[in-house]
């Protein structure tokens, strides 16, 4: 789903340099991962692959990813000192660098953990010009790029779940722009990523949390671009 080109694809964004794919893109992946985790992590590990691993330190990809997890936008000048800021917040930070050419050239796995949530593994790619996608959450395929408000759900795989969620959205007159489902095995857990026009209200989140056997509910708001 490609968005129409605008003037501001060409002039802007205002961002911390030096690279739209390796710095701004990294910030956005980190930011989305932080929002999906949803709380302050105690520890975060970044596993960088290929071009991210090879040229990342010269591009500040590490600082960008971490700054993003801390909630920074691409133009936040604290990105440069994100290691120090994470230390102040008591967040343990670890980086690993790997080669795996079955993966996208600019990809990263982000493992976040704290006592309340436990561990989550979120994978992302930077596809160029600051555009990004979250491709996996805890092994489930997603495609979250920050162009739309996106509802992220992980739940028990059983008949009727998609209907219940989409009926709830329809009841609130929310139009679905795109939808992506995945599961590991029949009857186990499954995932749903729903991009919507407009925004997802707190009412919807509350109603979703009443559905039994929904393990993760996140409302990932559109990225400031």
């Amino acid at each position: 789903m490609e968005k129409a080109k605008t003037l501001f694809d060409v002039i802007g964004p205002v961002m911390v340099g030096p690279s739209s794919s390796h710095t701004a893109g990294a910030v956005r992946i980190g930011y989305l991962a932080g929002k999906i985790f949803g709380e302050k992590p105690d520890n975060v590990t970044f596993v960088l692959y290929n071009s991210f691993a090879k040229t990342g330190r010269g591009h500040g990809t590490d600082k960008g990813l971490l700054g993003g997890v801390l909630g920074y936008d691409v133009d936040n000048e604290n990105i440069k000192i994100s290691y120090q800021e994470a230390e102040k917040l008591g967040i343990g930070v670890n980086f690993e660098y790997r080669e795996d050419y079955t993966r996208h050239p600019n990809s990263v796995d982000i493992i976040l953990e704290n006592k309340n949530i436990g561990k989550m593994e979120i994978s992302g790619i930077s596809v160029g010009a600051g555009e990004v996608a979250i491709t996996k959450i805890n092994g489930y395929k997603f495609n979250i790029n920050g162009d739309y408000d996106t509802l992220v759900l992980i739940y028990k795989d059983k008949p009727g779940m998609i209907y219940r969620v989409t009926a709830l959205l329809q009841g609130q007159n929310i139009n679905i722009a795109s939808m992506h489902c995945d599961r590991k095995a029949k009857g186990k857990q499954a995932s749903m990523g729903i991009c919507v026009d407009g925004s997802i209200s707190e009412y919807i989140i509350n109603e979703l949390s009443k559905i039994e056997e929904v393990y993760l509910i996140r409302n990932i708001e559109v990225l400031k671009k």
């Binding site: 002039i11 911390v16 340099g17 710095t23 500040g60 010009a129």
Partner: peptide, 21 residues
Amino acid sequence: EQNARMGKIAACPTAGSCGIV
């Protein structure tokens, strides 16, 4: 140079070409 030292710039059209326009 501001871009290279991780300063704040406006990409135009990209970060690597932000010094021209």
